[in-house]
Amino acid sequence: MPAFNRNPLSCGKTIGQKTYLHVDCIDLLPYDQQSRIATAQQLADVQKETHFNVIRLDLDGPGIALLAYSNFFEDPFPALKESWLVDLDQKSVRHRNYAESSNPPILHRKELLLPQEHPRREEYAALTAAAKSRWNTRSTRRIS
């Protein structure tokens, strides 16, 4: 099971040395992180909200993933549609499309990716709680 660390940023969900956050959090980040994201967008030739809605920051390395989750706000547990993995040191980009995947990655606990004051954060937290409750009655594994 992944280890959740204390998030060194003001927004997002940190697992290990990677922090996942919704694009609504960009303006809440320190300038250096905002700059890294802007550079990644330029290298990948993509725009927030148009092409991606979630960012994964590698806190101990040069990597940033720009992730497009289908229907982020409408789907309780959205599937990953596309990703751009950007290495800022190498100035390289790897694109992956999950549209044809029979088992794309699914986003859990999306409320943690949003700013604290987001109007739908509590709604998504309730969905997570309901899913965890249902899952815990069926399995000994946890939703992370």
Rank of each mutant, 00 (worst) to 15 (best):
L114H: 00
A38Q: 10
G12L: 03
N97S: 06
S101W: 01
R109H: 01
D60E: 14
R36E: 07
V23H: 11
P78E: 08
A79C: 09
S92T: 13
F4S: 06
D89R: 05
L113H: 03
Q42G: 10
R109W: 02
Q41V: 06
F73M: 05
D32Y: 07
G16L: 05
P104F: 03
Q116T: 07
S101P: 12
L114Q: 00
E49G: 13
H118L: 02
N5F: 06
P115F: 14
L112R: 02
D58S: 04
N136K: 03
D24T: 08
I143P: 03
E123Y: 11
N103D: 11
P2W: 12
L107R: 01
F4L: 14
C25E: 07
P8H: 03
P104D: 00
T128V: 08
L88V: 05
P76E: 02
R6N: 13
Q33F: 13
V46L: 01
N5K: 00
E74D: 14
T137K: 09
V93K: 02
K81A: 08
E49T: 15
P119I: 00
M1A: 11
L88C: 11
H22E: 14
Y124H: 11
P8F: 07
L127T: 10
I64S: 05
I26C: 02
R36G: 14
E117C: 00
Q34S: 02
S35D: 15
S70D: 15
K81W: 09
D27E: 12
